[in-house]
Amino acid sequence: MRQFLAKEWQVEESNPLMTTTEKAKKYSDIINLSIGDPDLPVPAEILEKAAADVLAGYTKYSDPWGYADLRQAIVDFYKEDYGVDIAMENVFVTAAGCAAMSLVLEAVLEEGDEVLLFDPYFSAYDQQVRVPGGVPVCVPCFEFEDWQPSAQRAEQYLSKRTKAMILNTPNNPTGVCYSDKTLHELAEFSKKHDLLVIADDIYTSFVYGGAKFVPIMSLPGMAERTVTVNSFSKNYVMTGLRIGNIVAPGDICRAVKHINECVVYSAPSYSQRAALYALQKRHEYARQIVPEFEKRMAYGAKRIRAIPAFTLSPAAGGIYLFPGIKKTGLTSMEVCQRILDEAHVLMVPGSAFGDAGEGYLRIACTVGVDKMAEAFDRLEKMPLLQGK
């Protein structure tokens, strides 16, 4: 029945990131370091309070914008943590961060509009830009520049159709945190060329070693040209609850509302209540969650640097490590397949994150150190990774 499909979907494309679930079924003893789905449970208090709300009657559609008390908590969060004043009309609650990104792009893009992606980038961006008719334009970043985006290089990729750019810090997949210098240069670049900035801010709690997260919308003149996409999936390990939000100028929020009413109408009531309680004690939960991932990241980096075929630049944030495998002489897909078949460890090839990701692998630190140790013990037994 292929003839009934839109042309966009008549050709099957395999995204290595999106096919890992099937690959994970191949071996019974697989150690899955591919998908960013942390193994830690959602803090029990969040679930208990949300469940009590459900029993109290929070089982109907919410306001399409989201529950008022959740939106107010988001307003308070930005004021208290970053000194940013936003209004309720600037907050819209969505069913997950990915949905938020798709809704925003549908709201702002017209056929042929170009969006700058700093490559390597989260693999979903490409298709999310294309679905509403946009054109992704990749601006390469490089390990020798610590994966920092270059506004100067981005100038070379501008055209009359360039409308927006997507930023992601702490970054998936590289683990880089954008420096103050980088953020200010990108902010000035966006103002100079009248670009919309879409900030994918979903790993904001995961910063290590003195690094810090700064929302680009907090910089002078940026609130009116920035859409911030948030998710509760990572900071509160609430991946399955599918809840997020956007912070944006009112016109964009209203457009997103109209589109979303044709999709899910409102975000899940239970998940919204859980998000509210997560925000109310966010600093306490961060103290529970973030040190565990910092420990895992440090352990993984130590083990990677002990394997001859790997190279690794420091990662100051996020939950991923992005080692280089160019010494093997193989593609990232080939190395991932060898690791899967010989060590029964599942990773994602860097090519899933754009052309600049070729020659690297993404390792998700989503299992405990004991399981990571088992994975690296297996890797160390591979002749390919020992340079033999």
Rank of each mutant, 00 (worst) to 15 (best):
A274P: 12
F310G: 00
I307H: 06
L385W: 03
C138A: 06
V367D: 05
N90I: 07
W147A: 06
V237D: 00
Q288T: 06
T174V: 04
T239G: 00
W65Y: 09
E374V: 13
R287Q: 11
A298R: 09
L55Y: 13
Q72L: 07
F206T: 07
M101T: 13
A73D: 03
S190E: 07
P291Y: 11
V42L: 02
A316H: 14
F122Q: 11
A286V: 10
A187T: 10
T19Y: 15
R296E: 07
V137C: 06
A52C: 01
A73P: 11
Q386S: 04
A364V: 03
M347A: 05
T366P: 01
T366E: 00
I166K: 08
A315F: 07
I363H: 00
Y67A: 12
G350C: 11
G134A: 10
I246Q: 00
T59K: 08
S271Y: 10
P149V: 14
V137G: 10
V264D: 02
I307M: 02
D81Y: 14
Q288K: 09
K181N: 05
A100C: 09
M88C: 07
G133A: 09
L340N: 15
D200F: 06
F376S: 04
Q72A: 14
D119A: 10
P170S: 07
E89N: 08
V290S: 07
N172V: 08
K49G: 00
E80C: 07
P291G: 01
V93R: 10
V54Q: 13
K23G: 13
Q288L: 06
V75E: 12
M165T: 12
K381T: 14
R362E: 05
M217D: 01
T174D: 00
L55W: 13
G318P: 10
G329V: 10
G359Y: 09
L276E: 13
F4R: 15
A124Y: 15
A50I: 09
L116W: 11
E224W: 01
N32E: 05
L340Y: 12
F206H: 12
L103D: 03
S351G: 11
N32M: 01
P170F: 05
A100R: 13
L105R: 10
F142Q: 10
T20R: 11
E110H: 04
T19F: 14
V207K: 03
A223E: 01
E45G: 03
D180P: 08
D200K: 12
L47F: 13
T328K: 00
K326R: 04
N235W: 02
A375T: 14
N230C: 02
L116N: 15
M382V: 13
S271Q: 05
Y82R: 02
D29A: 08
L117I: 15
P349W: 14
E80A: 06
L186C: 06
S269N: 12
V367G: 01
G387L: 12
Q288C: 04
V11E: 15
S150T: 14
G324T: 11
E380F: 08
R2D: 15
S271C: 11
D39T: 05
G300R: 06
A87R: 15
A95L: 10
